[in-house]
Design a protein around this nucleic acid. Structure first.
Lengths: 122, 122
DNA sequence: TGTATATTTGCATTATGGTGCAAGTACGCA
DNA sequence: TGCGTACTTGCACCATAATGCAAATATACA
């Protein structure tokens, strides 16, 4: 199977390798903000999360809303404060689904002990 | 625990949320090239992979070497051709490790049936 | 040794995205 | 109603990165 033929063949990995999700995680500041939220575990206000980083609060606001658009966190507005929480379940599910989808494409000879033979015939 | 306190507390997730890896996966062209390689399963030359995308071959070359620097693929030069292969094991391991690390931080109330109580005391 | 092929590198151009400041909006409270 | 707080948005600036073309490099082969 040539790369061209392979790319024409639809697999779960096609939808899972979503550049938007990875783009959301690709900035150091966002990474820090997310790590902060992940470890905190509770719903945090924009101002609170902002204290983890030495950037303007407007930057924090933009980063958090971008993370929300990417499905990484969720927001809830109460009064004039906005709380952000990590969507743990979605994130974990996505990461594991990516791993599964990649593994599904892995030729058998690279999976010691695996007899699936998904594409090991080559 | 405030976000600031949380961010000061080191967790496995800190090292796993590596912006460099995600940056490598955040470009649509690279995503396509990687998807092509993942589905193909075998070692492909730069030219072969390039046929999956409507970009200059020099662009393909640069993208593949960037993916290699990120640890996503590996290259092997034989003669004047360079073959790229996906590092399936590393990619899968990383994605699952991220999922595990995130789950480890997830408060108990968000993990139905989970009695770990990692940060559920709050 | 000369030529063709595979890939990389230099360079200029263009697009994208992160940042801070200032202003705007939304809301609670006196 | 006026003021303070929490957050968002508009805007300009700057850095980074994606791209294509042309040239360079590396290697195979006649």
């Amino acid at each position: 199977m040539t790369p061209v033929q392979a790319s024409a063949c639809c697999r779960p990995i096609d939808d899972l390798l979503d550049p938007e999700l990875f783009k959301a995680l690709s900035d150091p500041t966002r990474s820090r903000l997310l790590g902060c939220l992940v470890k905190c575990g509770c719903a945090c206000t924009v101002s609170d999360v902002g204290e983890c980083c030495a950037v303007d609060l407007s930057v924090v606001s933009r980063h958090l809303s971008l993370l929300e658009r990417a499905g990484v966190v969720q927001s809830r507005k109460t009064g004039r404060t906005v709380h952000y929480v990590v969507d743990y379940a979605h994130l974990c599910r996505t990461m594991r689904a990516i791993a599964d989808a990649i593994e599904q494409c892995c030729p058998a000879e690279q999976l010691p002990g695996c007899a699936r033979g998904c594409c090991g015939a080559r």
